[in-house]
């Protein structure tokens, strides 16, 4: 089979894998590499459940070919917590009950990280538009927006 060998970095760790040319990064993350924290909701870029960072830029892993990841740095939900514990965004999602079923949560947390990396103090409208590509069907978004606002405060003024 005409598989391609790709070398990339996932959550700071060098990773090599074989993929078919038409396979998405999402398929490889989940099925080949067993990183199932990145979720699949539509595979057409319409739900954001598979949000990951590619060189710090927010993308849908379902709309990136695995082959395109070669030489780039990928950050997934599994890469956010550290030895010190949960990332403040993860902590705030928990404290604000910003998840119900939780399937959209990894994507939303990664998208929030990309937002706060660029806009440390976003207003509500900025947050809502930035996260418009992440569908959540459970929460009505209210508690998510509040968690993001609180995470921004917490990142600006670490306790």
């Amino acid at each position: 089979m005409d598989k391609i060998q790709i070398g990339t970095s996932i959550n700071g760790e060098a990773v090599e894998f074989l993929c078919e040319p038409q396979q998405s990064l999402l398929e490889v993350l989940r099925d080949t590499l067993g990183r199932t924290g990145t979720k699949e909701g539509c595979s057409t870029g319409d739900c954001g459940a598979c949000s990951v960072l590619m060189d710090g830029r927010l993308v849908c892993a379902c709309l990136v070919l695995a082959a395109e990841a070669g030489g780039h740095e990928i950050t997934t939900i599994e890469g956010l917590a550290t030895d010190a514990g949960l990332h403040p965004i993860q902590q705030k999602f928990l404290e604000h009950a910003a998840l119900q079923c939780g399937i959209c949560t990894p994507g939303l947390i990664v998208a929030t990280k990309a937002l706060l990396d660029r806009h440390p103090d976003p207003d509500e409208t900025t947050i809502r538009y930035w996260l418009a590509g992440n569908l959540c069907r459970c929460t009505g978004y209210d508690k998510i927006i509040r968690a993001v606002q609180d995470a921004a405060r917490s990142l600006a003024h670490p306790a």
């Binding site: 993308v59 998208a111 930035w130 996260l131």
Partner: peptide, 9 residues
Amino acid sequence: IGSTQIQGR
């Protein structure tokens, strides 16, 4: 064009 994610590509 699409979402933040789409605009990244």
